[in-house]
Design a binder for these strands. Structure first.
Length: 263
DNA sequence: ATGTCAAGTTGCACTTGA
């Protein structure tokens, strides 16, 4: 069972590339972020016509997440709950969708960037991560495979395996101790960083800025992650970055990261 | 030093967010 996460940076601008990638890669589930579309104008029919199931949680202009699946999708949750598990009143940003596919609980998440820092955007990022950790903890009680996939906007480690130039990112919200501590909190709960389980070392970037020729120079960072509950980790067979989409014309600034779970 | 892109709008040139 292949599950991929892909920040597509605008579903309408990327639709031909997205359809090509779905056709080529054939994921069982694709977790999309930054669809930058409301649900009503998401190109649902174009994707459904190729045999996919589509579930979206969009908003106007920015953010927005979606699940695209070869298989039926049930028990959909839209929006990340509050720390206490209730509805997060006052959060109008569409950054989280979760559902069950083939008896695996799969989430597509788009964690706040948090820049500039310090400031309200960084505070929102940390508060959002607190909610994610609390929700991830609750999900463990179902004792079945859980895959939390998405753009975490956190570079896990200060080394060139995760960041082409750690010194250049030292003041960025993506590298702060507070951000990293909350990502580690998922690990302490029992979630596994699937890509680093399969590839413990070596550059595995998933994002390259459009500016300064970052892709051509491989000046990337690793910020797209799939975190696996113990029941999902038991089934982990493979994981990697698919760099092919990033090299194409009209590419997103991210490229897909994927896992393969045993049946 | 600079270099980009997508979406939205009191729109065709700018802002915002990344």
């Amino acid at each position: 069972m292949k599950i991929a996460t892909f920040n597509i940076n605008g579903v309408k601008a990327r639709l031909p590339r997205l359809l090509e990638w779905l056709d080529t890669f054939q994921p069982d589930v694709a977790c999309l972020q930054e669809i930058k579309s409301v649900d009503e104008t998401f190109p649902r029919m174009e994707i459904e016509d190729k045999g996919w199931h589509v579930e979206t949680h969009g908003q106007k202009g920015f953010n927005g997440v979606a699940l695209i699946s070869r298989h039926p999708v049930t028990d959909i949750v839209r929006g990340l709950p509050a720390v206490d598990g209730g509805v997060a009143d006052g959060d109008d940003q569409s950054r989280y969708i979760e559902a069950t596919v083939m008896n695996v609980r799969v989430a597509s998440l788009y964690l706040p960037n948090g820049n500039p820092r310090p400031g309200p955007k960084f505070d929102y990022k940390l508060a959002w991560m607190d909610r994610l950790v609390a929700h991830a903890s609750r999900l463990l009680t179902v004792e079945r495979p859980v895959v939390l996939a998405g753009d975490y906007n956190v570079i896990p480690q200060d080394d060139t395996d995760d960041c082409h130039d750690p010194a250049a990112w030292v003041d960025d919200a993506l590298t702060q101790p507070e951000s990293r501590a909350r990502l580690r909190a998922l690990t302490h709960l029992g979630y596994l960083d699937a890509l680093r389980q399969i590839h413990p070392a070596g550059p595995k970037y998933s994002f390259w800025d459009y500016q300064r020729g970052a892709w051509a120079k491989d000046h990337g960072i690793r910020i797209d992650h799939l975190m696996l509950s113990p029941e999902a980790a038991d089934r982990l067979k493979g994981a990697d970055v698919d760099r092919i989409p990033r090299a194409q014309e009209k590419a997103s600034d991210h490229t897909p990261v994927w896992i393969d779970l045993a049946a």
